[in-house]
Simulated scan of single mutants.
Amino acid sequence: MADFIKIYEDNPNPREIKRVADAMRNGALVIYPTDTVYGLGCDITNKNALEKVARIKGVKLEKANFSFICEDLSNLSDYVSQIDSGTFKLLKRNLPGPYTFILPGNNNLPTVFKKKKTVGIRVPDHPIAIALVRELGRPIISTSIKDDDEVIEYTTDPSLIWEKWDHLVDIVIDGGYGGNIGSTIIDLTGDEPNWCVKEKAV
């Protein structure tokens, strides 16, 4: 059964944040709040955890379109090919925020993603998500958790999320009620930004 950990958005407890980040380093799958919907995430460097997330989502890991949850844009060059100043200004203007930006990946992507030519970058405007990434010291690979209900696409109550996911993940963070609209995806790999409709992204 997954641990159910209460962390307050206004003032995330450093001890609890460290507890979750340490678990992620050891391969834990964590459901956590963002500025949009609740997300399922793991350490970007833990292949076993990545494979578990892919299995849960029903996709092959090398073809999975997961988001990279980052603390800020300072480490963008670690995973993204060189971008022009206009693109960087667009990112700077909209992040942190409820957006996933699709950017050209570089050769530094984790081995399991080497064949992918693009990467989805997220900097959520949420203290818990940012605190987790900061404590972990590297991005979190993340995907949204969807509900089977055709009317309510995303569950917003963390206690209900825990009931549904406790046998699939290791930790569910109770950060209060979440949103029910995923992030907007903006593809920046073409000549002009392609502002997509609201997608099923964390």
Rank of each mutant, 00 (worst) to 15 (best):
F4L: 13
F4R: 07
I5K: 11
E9V: 11
N13P: 02
P14F: 01
R25H: 14
G27T: 02
L29N: 09
I31A: 01
Y32F: 15
P33N: 13
G39M: 08
T45W: 05
N48Q: 13
A49D: 03
K52P: 08
R55M: 05
K60P: 01
L61V: 08
E62N: 14
E62P: 00
A64T: 07
N65Q: 15
D72M: 07
L73Q: 11
L76F: 07
D78V: 00
G86Y: 14
L90D: 06
L95H: 03
Y99D: 11
I102Q: 06
N107L: 14
T111N: 14
K116M: 12
V119C: 05
I121A: 01
P124L: 06
D125W: 04
H126F: 05
A129Q: 02
I130N: 06
L136R: 08
I141W: 15
K146L: 15
D147N: 15
D147A: 15
I152H: 14
T156L: 01
P158W: 02
L160K: 15
I161H: 02
E163V: 00
W165T: 01
L168W: 02
V169C: 06
V169I: 13
D170E: 07
I173A: 09
G176S: 06
G178Y: 08
G178N: 05
G178Q: 12
I181A: 07
S183W: 04
T189D: 06
E192V: 09
C196G: 05
